[in-house]
Amino acid sequence: MWRRPGMRTDSSHSPPAAQVGRRVFLGVGLAAVGATVSCTRGTAGGTWRFFTPAQAQTVDAICAQLIPADQDPGAKEAGVVNFIDLQLSKRFKKYRAVYQQGIDAVDAASRSKFGTRFVELTGERQVEVLNVVEENSPVFFDLIVTHARQGFYGDPRHGGNRNMVSWKMLGLPFPPVRGREHYKG
C-alpha cells in the first residue's frame, strides 16, 4: 500500500496482504511473465529480415550471376543479398511485391526449363534462366540489377559491400587519408 513518506500507519487498519492479494498477485505476476516471455520471443528469428531462407538463396544466386567473382570478389562475397534484404525492410518496402513475384518467376522459369530450382543449376544454366527472366519479367530484372550494383558499390553501412570489397577492387583507399589545412589567427 502506498503511503506518503513520514505518514504514520495503523497496521490494524491494513488488510492482511495474503488474504486480499494472493489471487490478484498471481494473476498480475502471470500476466507480467507472459508479457515478458512474448517480448523475448522476437518476431522472426533467423538471419533474414524479409526473405525466407530459400528466397535469400535464390536472390544470392541471381546476384552472383550478375556480378560474378573473378580475380576479385563478386556480389556473393560482398553480401549484396544482405543489402537487398535489409533495404526491403526499410526504404525498398515498395518493391516487396516485385521481389516476391520475381523470385517466383525465376524458380518457375528454372523448373520449366530444367526441372529444378534455380539455385541447384550450374552457372551456365542459371544464365540461361536469367535471359528468360530478363525478357519475361523486365521490371524485376532491371530492379535487381540496379540493387545489385547499389549493394556492391555502395556504402557498407547499408548492408552490402562487405569489407569494402568493391572499393578495394577499384583501388580506392578507405578511409582516405585527408588532413585539413590549418590557419593562424
Binding site: W2, V20, V28
Partner: peptide
C-alpha cells in the same frame, strides 16, 4: 483496496518487465 493493490501490482509488474 483490491483495485489499489491490483493497480500497484500492475505498475510494479510493468516496471519490472
Amino acid at each position: 483496496k483490491k483495485i489499489v493493490l491490483t493497480a500497484g501490482l500492475l505498475i510494479a509488474a510493468c516496471l519490472l518487465m
